[in-house]
Amino acid sequence: MEKTIYSGQYALFIKLLRAAREDAGLTQEEVAARLKATQTFVSKCERGERRLDIIELRNWCKALGIPAAQFVAELEKKL
Protein backbone atom coordinates (compact mmCIF):
# COMPACT_ATOMS: atom_id res chain seq x y z
CA MET A 1 0.00 0.00 0.00
CA GLU A 2 1.29 3.43 -0.93
CA LYS A 3 2.02 5.80 1.94
CA THR A 4 -0.69 8.45 1.86
CA ILE A 5 1.75 11.32 2.22
CA TYR A 6 2.93 10.53 -1.33
CA SER A 7 -0.54 10.02 -2.80
CA GLY A 8 -2.42 12.26 -5.17
CA GLN A 9 -5.09 12.59 -2.50
CA TYR A 10 -2.60 14.03 -0.01
CA ALA A 11 -1.26 16.37 -2.70
CA LEU A 12 -4.81 17.66 -3.15
CA PHE A 13 -5.17 18.04 0.63
CA ILE A 14 -2.12 20.28 0.91
CA LYS A 15 -3.13 22.22 -2.21
CA LEU A 16 -6.49 22.98 -0.57
CA LEU A 17 -4.76 23.82 2.71
CA ARG A 18 -2.60 26.44 1.01
CA ALA A 19 -5.56 27.76 -1.00
CA ALA A 20 -7.61 28.14 2.20
CA ARG A 21 -4.79 30.17 3.76
CA GLU A 22 -4.48 32.36 0.69
CA ASP A 23 -8.29 32.80 0.48
CA ALA A 24 -8.21 33.96 4.11
CA GLY A 25 -5.62 36.56 3.08
CA LEU A 26 -3.04 35.25 5.53
CA THR A 27 0.68 34.73 5.16
CA GLN A 28 2.48 31.68 6.46
CA GLU A 29 3.89 33.86 9.21
CA GLU A 30 0.42 34.99 10.30
CA VAL A 31 -0.90 31.42 10.38
CA ALA A 32 2.17 30.35 12.34
CA ALA A 33 1.58 33.08 14.91
CA ARG A 34 -2.04 31.99 15.32
CA LEU A 35 -0.92 28.37 15.74
CA LYS A 36 1.89 29.37 18.11
CA ALA A 37 4.25 27.63 15.71
CA THR A 38 7.02 28.65 13.36
CA GLN A 39 6.73 29.73 9.75
CA THR A 40 8.93 26.74 8.93
CA PHE A 41 6.29 24.41 10.41
CA VAL A 42 3.58 25.98 8.23
CA SER A 43 5.82 25.79 5.16
CA LYS A 44 6.65 22.13 5.76
CA CYS A 45 2.97 21.30 6.14
CA GLU A 46 2.08 23.11 2.93
CA ARG A 47 4.88 21.32 1.06
CA GLY A 48 3.81 17.93 2.39
CA GLU A 49 7.00 17.37 4.37
CA ARG A 50 5.08 17.39 7.66
CA ARG A 51 1.78 15.56 8.05
CA LEU A 52 -1.09 17.06 9.98
CA ASP A 53 -3.22 14.96 12.26
CA ILE A 54 -6.93 15.68 12.71
CA ILE A 55 -6.43 17.83 15.81
CA GLU A 56 -3.76 19.90 14.05
CA LEU A 57 -6.07 20.28 11.05
CA ARG A 58 -8.85 21.51 13.34
CA ASN A 59 -6.50 24.07 14.89
CA TRP A 60 -5.27 25.10 11.45
CA CYS A 61 -8.86 25.69 10.29
CA LYS A 62 -9.56 27.74 13.43
CA ALA A 63 -6.49 29.84 12.64
CA LEU A 64 -7.89 30.42 9.14
CA GLY A 65 -11.33 31.28 10.48
CA ILE A 66 -13.13 28.40 8.76
CA PRO A 67 -14.94 25.41 10.23
CA ALA A 68 -12.98 22.18 9.90
CA ALA A 69 -16.15 20.51 8.58
CA GLN A 70 -16.25 23.04 5.73
CA PHE A 71 -12.64 22.29 4.81
CA VAL A 72 -13.22 18.52 4.91
CA ALA A 73 -16.42 18.87 2.85
CA GLU A 74 -14.46 20.78 0.19
CA LEU A 75 -11.78 18.10 0.22
CA GLU A 76 -14.39 15.35 -0.16
CA LYS A 77 -15.99 17.25 -3.04
CA LYS A 78 -12.65 17.51 -4.86
CA LEU A 79 -11.68 13.90 -4.20
Rank of each mutant, 00 (worst) to 15 (best):
Q39Y: 08
Q39S: 13
Q39C: 06
T40E: 07
T40D: 10
F41C: 03
F41I: 08
F41Y: 15
F41G: 04
V42Q: 09
V42A: 13
V42T: 13
V42D: 14
V42W: 14
V42S: 10
S43W: 08
S43T: 07
S43V: 00
S43P: 00
S43F: 04
K44T: 00
K44C: 02
K44P: 00
C45R: 11
C45K: 11
E46D: 10
E46V: 01
E46K: 05
E46N: 06
E46L: 01
E46M: 08
R47A: 01
R47M: 02
R47D: 00
R47L: 10
R47C: 02
R47G: 00
G48I: 00
G48Q: 02
G48V: 01
G48C: 07
G48L: 11
E49L: 12
E49N: 12
E49A: 08
E49Y: 02
E49F: 04
R50A: 00
R51T: 04
R51A: 12
R51D: 02
R51E: 12
L52Y: 04
L52I: 04
L52N: 03
L52Q: 09
D53F: 04
D53P: 00
I54M: 13
I54K: 06
I54Q: 09
I54V: 14
I55Y: 12
I55T: 11
I55K: 04
I55R: 09
E56D: 08
E56Y: 03
E56S: 10
L57M: 14
L57N: 05
L57K: 03
L57R: 05
L57W: 06
R58M: 07
R58G: 08
N59C: 11
N59Q: 13
N59P: 02
N59I: 01
N59R: 15
N59G: 13
W60E: 08
W60S: 09
W60M: 15
W60V: 10
W60F: 15
W60A: 07
C61G: 05
C61E: 01
C61H: 04
C61I: 06
K62I: 03
K62D: 15
K62A: 10
K62F: 05
A63C: 06
A63F: 03
A63T: 05
A63R: 11
L64W: 06
L64H: 12
L64N: 09
L64Q: 10
L64T: 06
G65C: 09
G65Q: 07
G65R: 10
I66P: 05
I66S: 08
I66Y: 13
P67M: 06
P67Q: 12
P67R: 14
P67F: 05
P67E: 15
P67T: 01
A68C: 15
A68H: 07
A68W: 03
A69T: 14
Q70W: 12
Q70H: 13
Q70C: 00
F71P: 01
F71V: 10
F71M: 09
F71K: 09
F71D: 12
